[in-house]
Structures are given as structure tokens and as C-alpha cells.
Design a protein around this nucleic acid. Structure first.
Lengths: 176, 176
DNA sequence: CTTGAAATACTACTACG
DNA sequence: CGTAGTAGTATTTCAAG
């Protein structure tokens, strides 16, 4: 094996490792432009998208499909305006469980999925076991939710609610 | 004016008030089916969507456009898999400001918008002034973010970080 | 006011260079 | 990756419930 070939193989191995470490690195300027656009507005037609990223339509479509297949684009969805949909109130909730047993956690997680308007639920470090964010209509409806669902979540020692007074920033967009 | 007319007017006023109170009430079964579908997968073609909700393509398209124009559908976007994009770590952050003045809040809010990977930032009631959620790659990158950006946010007295260990639920879907 | 059928314009998609 | 061609879709028009 020649010294040149060895150097080439080495170079390639480094490149592959870099991609593994950060998939974004494997995306060129055009892929990023596509992702930036689709994160903002995915209802744009493929030809318009192609023009925007200065590519032919088929080439652009191939890239988008590759991005979907690779799983980087998880889904294309419609975002609904919560206020218009009658769920203008956002509440963040910290939960402390009674006992820190696997069964206790599993039971809670199963039940939490079914809380009406629950958008996020995560296990966290720190003074809480779980953090949830819930969308509901107003303080009345939240009070009902609190009394009828949250207080009946299994194995809960304490629930602390942080009502959102003002949404400064709320985005699904990812820094690229 | 006849008694019948009066009753009709009354009835209509009640209906209008109901719609104002909850725009979802004004949506029929088909609109809801459309929204449910588009919240899950908006890359579906209009003809396929029409078939799914048992409507002709033009009628379906008109409804979708109406839903967009009314603002109920805020946007159609591509969701990127954070892990695949090299930002698999999620951190929730509670912030307490030094002083509770309008200037202090305004200054903080302006600066918070520019924190790399900040997905949400809200004013909340309770023991914190703000709650933020931040996406980043790993604990190293979060540590850098913490040292280089979070600690320099203006007017901050205390920052408390809750690292997310497990994402149980994370959705943009709305209960309809 | 909304729907559905037909016609047109445009787009997605394929094959190939 | 781009060009050209085909298949299918979106979109308009219009008639009818």
C-alpha cells in the first residue's frame, strides 16, 4: 500500500469520525439553507425552495428526501396557534414523587401522557423529579385540570405550578 | 319586532359569543379531522388529505386555506430531530432577576432571545422570574454556554439549571 | 355559503446525459 | 447535478345543493 493511499484513508477516517460526532458537519451550505427554510415554512413548493437555494428542482427534492430519510427532518407538521384554539394559557409544572423507585417513575410517566394539554414531560435533575408544560384555556380550566387530573397522578408528593404570564420566545427552530 | 325575531337574535348572539370564547367550537368535524392530520403529518398531499376526511380536493383545499388565513394554522414547518442535529441535551432553566423593574425585565428579554439554542423563554409566577428551555449538544457545550452566555445575561441574581435526563413527552400536537 | 365536476396550469417525479 | 419528459397534483371556473 502506498504512502499516498495511507494518507487518504487516514483523512477519510477523520472525516467520518467528524460526521459521527456532529451530523450537521456533514451538511453543506445548501442543506443548511434548505433546513432553515423548511423550519420556517415547509408549505413552500419544491420549485420555489429550489430557486431559493439556487438549485434545480430535482436536485433539491433529492436533498429534502435524503434529509427526511436520514431522520434529521423528523416530520413536517402544522403548528396551531394555541390562543386561537382556545388554549392561551401555558403552565409549567414541577413534580416531586413520593418514592424514587422504578415502579413509581414508570407509573407516573404512563399517567402523565394522558393529562389533557400536556405538551412536554421530562425527567430532570435538581429539586424536581419531573417537569411538565401544559396548555389549557384559562385559570378556570387549569384549576379544573389541577383538581381532576394533576392531583390524581400516581405517587406524587408535591406539585408546584408556574403560570406563564408572558411568552417571550417559543420556537421549534433549530440553530444551524 | 316579533317575538320570534327577538328569540332568533338572541340565539345568534349566544352563538357568536360562544365562537369568540372558543374558536374551536366553530369548527365542524371535518375541520378538526384536517387539523388532527396536519398536526401529525402535513407533508401529505391535498388529494390524500381530502380522501382521508371524505371530501373533494377543492373543498378540502379551501378549508385548509381558510384555516391558515384565520391564523389557527400558524405555520407549516419541518421539525428537526435534535439528537440527529447534535443537540440532544435539553436543559430547563429558572432565572431570578436582581430587581423587578420594567427596564430590568426588558433588558433581560432582549438578551435572552440571543442565547444559542434557546427554544423557550417565559415570564412565570412563583419562585422564578423566567423559565427558559435550551437545547445544546452535551454537558460540555452546556457548560460553555453557561459560562459564556447565561452568566452574562443582564440583571440576573440566580440561575438554576434542571438538566433533562429523559424526555417522556414532547409534542406540538394540540388536543382537538 | 359550501360542495363537487371538469378543465387548465403547475408541480413532483423519473430517466438519462 | 442538470435537462427534458411524463404523471400527477394543485388550482380555477362554474354549476348545483
Amino acid at each position: 500500500m502506498s504512502a499516498t493511499k495511507l494518507r487518504k484513508d487516514q483523512k477519510r477516517a477523520v472525516a467520518v469520525a467528524a460526521v459521527r460526532a456532529d451530523p450537521l458537519q456533514s451538511l453543506d451550505r445548501i442543506d443548511r439553507a434548505i433546513l432553515r427554510q423548511l423550519q420556517t415554512d415547509a408549505s413552500i413548493s419544491n420549485v420555489a425552495l429550489a430557486a431559493r437555494v439556487k438549485l434545480s428542482a430535482p436536485a433539491c427534492l433529492r436533498r429534502v428526501e435524503r434529509l427526511k430519510e436520514s431522520g434529521l427532518i423528523q416530520a413536517v407538521v402544522a403548528l396551531i396557534d394555541p390562543k386561537a384554539a382556545g388554549a392561551g394559557m401555558l403552565v409549567m409544572i414541577g413534580v416531586v414523587l413520593d418514592r424514587s423507585t422504578p415502579e413509581s417513575f414508570a407509573e407516573f410517566e404512563k399517567a402523565a401522557q394522558n393529562v389533557t394539554g400536556c405538551m412536554e414531560c421530562h425527567v430532570v435533575t435538581g429539586e424536581f423529579d419531573y417537569f411538565m408544560t401544559i396548555r389549557t384555556r384559562d385559570s378556570d380550566s387549569f384549576n379544573r385540570l389541577h383538581a381532576e387530573q394533576l392531583l390524581y397522578l400516581p405517587g406524587v408528593r408535591q406539585i408546584r405550578s408556574f403560570m406563564v404570564l408572558k411568552e417571550i420566545l417559543s420556537t421549534t427552530k433549530f440553530p444551524l
